[in-house]
C-alpha cells in the first residue's frame, strides 16, 4: 500500500512544473494491486506508471554492441508510444545501458546510442520530442550481476522511466 499511496501522491502533483531532473518513478506498485480492479495508481489502473512498467513494458533489449531495435523491441515501443500519447501528463527519461563487457567510456557512448534509438522511434511514433530525454549509464547500473550472457542480455537495455510533468521544452 505504501507504494500505491506514493504513486497516487505523485499523480496529484502532476504538472507542477518541469525541471531538469524530474523525479523518477521507481517500481511503484510492482507486484501489488493485481486483480483489485482499477485502484488508482495500481498496476491495474491503465493510466498508472505501474501499468506502464508491467503491462506496456518499460524496457527493450539489444544485441552485443548494437543499438538496432529488434522486431520485439519495436512492438514494445509502439505500445509505449501509444501509452505516452494517451497519458500526456507524463514525460520520460530513456536510460541506455550496456553490459560489463566493454570499457567504461565506450559503454557510456553505446548506452547513449541505445537510448537515442528508442527516443527517435518514440518520436517517429508520435510522442512529442519535448517529453523525452535520454541518459546513458553505460555499464554502471546493471540489473543482473552475474558475469555470463544470461545477465548480460538483461543489462543491454533501454528503459523508459516515467516522470511527472509534461516535459521540458
Amino acid at each position: 500500500m505504501r507504494h500505491l499511496t506514493r504513486a497516487a501522491l505523485l499523480i496529484m502533483v502532476l504538472g507542477a512544473a518541469a525541471c531538469t531532473n524530474p523525479g523518477r518513478f521507481d517500481n511503484a506498485g510492482a507486484g501489488g494491486g493485481a486483480g483489485a480492479g482499477a485502484v488508482p495508481g495500481s498496476a491495474s489502473d491503465p493510466t498508472s506508471p505501474a501499468y506502464f512498467q508491467q503491462t506496456v513494458g518499460d524496457r527493450v533489449f539489444f544485441a552485443v554492441d548494437q543499438s538496432t531495435l529488434s522486431a520485439e523491441a519495436r512492438d514494445t515501443l509502439l505500445k509505449q508510444a501509444a501509452w505516452l500519447k494517451d497519458n500526456p501528463a507524463f514525460s520520460a527519461i530513456i536510460e541506455g545501458h550496456a553490459d560489463e563487457q566493454g570499457t567504461r567510456e565506450y559503454n557510456l557512448a553505446l548506452g547513449a546510442r541505445r537510448a537515442s534509438a528508442v527516443q527517435n522511434f518514440l518520436i517517429e511514433a508520435g510522442v512529442e520530442a519535448a517529453r523525452l530525454r535520454t541518459v546513458s549509464y553505460g555499464k554502471e547500473r546493471p540489473i543482473a550481476i552475474c558475469s555470463d550472457e544470461s545477465c548480460y542480455a538483461q543489462n543491454r537495455r533501454a528503459v523508459t522511466v516515467l516522470s511527472a510533468g509534461p516535459g521540458t521544452s
Partner: peptide, 22 residues
C-alpha cells in the same frame, strides 16, 4: 565525458554526445 587536460593545462579534450552520437 572522457575529459583529459592538454599538456599546458589550459584546455580540455572530451567527448560530447548529442542525439546518440558521440
Amino acid at each position: 565525458f572522457a575529459p583529459r587536460f592538454s599538456p599546458d593545462g589550459k584546455s580540455v579534450v572530451f567527448s560530447l554526445e548529442k542525439g546518440g552520437n558521440t
